[in-house]
Structure formats: structure tokens, C-alpha cells
Simulated scan of single mutants.
Amino acid sequence: MTAAGGVFSQRIREQWNEQLGRRLDILVAGCGRGTPLDLDRIEARVTGVDEDRPDLRAATAARTDLNVWSLGDLRSAALAPRSYDVVCVEFLLERIPHAELVLDRIVNGLRPGGLLLIRMRDRKSAYGFLDRKAPFRNRLWRWLAPAGAVGPLPAVYEPVSSREGIQSYCLMRGLMIAEEHTLTSGTARLGPRGGLVALLCRAVGRLSGGRLATDHDEVALVVRKPQHHFARLI
């Protein structure tokens, strides 16, 4: 399990303890790209949603932690308001259009006091730049990605899929960022030619004059939706 995955599992366990053992309703948005949750000895009902793509469908069907799942257009997915105690958004925002609209719908499904756990590729990292700008990206995927990796998936990278973009989003929506972590977890960096990819990231970072980060490519956040009535209702 990744460092972010370990933190998320611990925060989910704490949320369950705070609710005195009541069943947690969990939504996993990006279930075709994410990893199974560690819910050992936690009573939970887990719902998965993602885009409808053949590789995502196969990965979703193989997961053992989902009680129910659906794939389709995330702008119209059936997400009832205030229905989930925890929402995990896993490597979804950087690969979909209309990311803020989709995120609004996902957050609307979160109960007051609930947790929003986000993992995403940082648009303003050197890796994120290469991911969206590399020529022949789909052909390179098979050469760079580790065996069994899901993809290649679209590389849209709208402004919200950056460290500054998601911070601004949370501020405007009245969401409180409790923790923020930066990590290196890019698929191509974990593949058979990870050293070459790391070298390219360093070169791109230097050429950008330091504007594109080379010390991370993933941003992971633990966000809480406030309980109080002054928070913006979405």
C-alpha cells in the first residue's frame, strides 16, 4: 500500500470510530484506477463510480472491496445528496473533462462532517507536463508502464488538477484541508524505464525555470466538509 493509501485508511478508521461504530457509507470515485481500500474490521458499504471504458471496467470488476459499482458519464451519475461519510477521489480529476462540475457533484454527495480523500496527478509537476504533452503518448505507454497497469487513460489536466487549483477549489467551497502530502507515484516512474522518466522530469523542471515541480507528481489531500451552517451548501 502507498503512503497516501496508508494515511487514507487510518483516517477512514478514525471516522468510523468517531461515529461509534455505525456503518460507513463510502464512495470511491475513480474506482477503475484506484486501489482497494483497507477496511479490515470496519463495517462499510462501498460504492464505486468511474467512466465507462473497457480497461476501467475490467479493473473495477476485479476489485473485491466494492459492494456496488457503476460506470458512465460522471456528470450524470446517480449520486444522492449527503449520502456518504467518506468520498475517495482516486486519480480521476486529471483525466476527465468538466472536472470541477464532477467534483461538485461528488462533494454534494458527502455528508456534513464527512471526509473527502483526494489523490491526483499534479498538473504543475514536470511529470504532469510530460503526461499531457508527450508526443505518441499512447504508444509510449506500453513501453514505459509496468505490467498490468490500467491505461493509457486520457490526460486532460484541467486547472483544478494542480496543487494550487485544488487548494483554491476547497477554499471557494468552504472545505477544510486537514492534511496535504506530495508524493512520487507516476505510473511511468514505477515502470521498467523509471530512471529515464525521472531524468526527463528533471530536465523539464530545469527548462521550466523551476515552475514545474520535480520533487513530486502526486498530491494527496485529507479534506473535511464542515458541520456548521455557515459553510457553503453544495
Rank of each mutant, 00 (worst) to 15 (best):
L103S: 04
L200M: 08
V46N: 03
G174M: 03
T214P: 06
R193D: 00
G151D: 07
G195S: 10
G209H: 03
D73G: 07
R82N: 09
L37Q: 04
E179K: 14
E180H: 02
V222G: 01
D52Q: 12
C201M: 12
V102M: 01
M172N: 14
L39M: 09
P226Q: 08
E14Y: 01
D104S: 14
R142P: 02
L92K: 08
M1Q: 11
H98S: 15
A44I: 02
A149C: 14
A178V: 15
I166T: 02
N17Y: 00
G32N: 02
V222K: 01
A213N: 11
A203N: 10
R121C: 15
L20D: 07
V46C: 05
L199H: 06
R75P: 09
R95I: 10
V102T: 01
R53N: 09
G186A: 08
D73E: 07
F136N: 05
P154Y: 08
D217C: 11
L200F: 01
T184R: 15
R95F: 08
R206N: 05
A147Q: 15
F230W: 06
A3V: 06
F230T: 09
L190D: 05
R82C: 01
G6I: 12
L110K: 01
H228S: 12
G48D: 11
L115S: 02
V222Q: 07
T182V: 15
G186D: 03
A203S: 13
P152N: 12
V204S: 10
R22C: 07
H228P: 01
P152W: 04
I177K: 10
Y169F: 15
I12T: 05
N108C: 13
R137S: 12
N67H: 11
R119T: 11
G128M: 09
L183Q: 01
R211Q: 14
G32I: 02
A29E: 03
K225M: 06
L207A: 15
H229E: 05
E179H: 13
V87W: 07
V87F: 00
A99S: 11
F129A: 12
P36E: 03
A134L: 14
R142I: 06
H228I: 00
L183M: 07
T64K: 14
S185G: 14
I12W: 11
G72D: 03
D55M: 11
E218T: 13
E14V: 06
T64E: 13
G191Y: 07
Y157L: 03
S168K: 12
A61I: 02
R137N: 15
L116Y: 06
V107E: 06
I234W: 12
S208T: 02
Q19R: 12
A231D: 10
N108M: 10
R137I: 10
R211G: 06
K225N: 00
D104P: 13
V28C: 10
L175H: 11
M120D: 02
G113K: 11
L37Y: 03
R23E: 14
D73K: 01
S76R: 13
R189S: 13
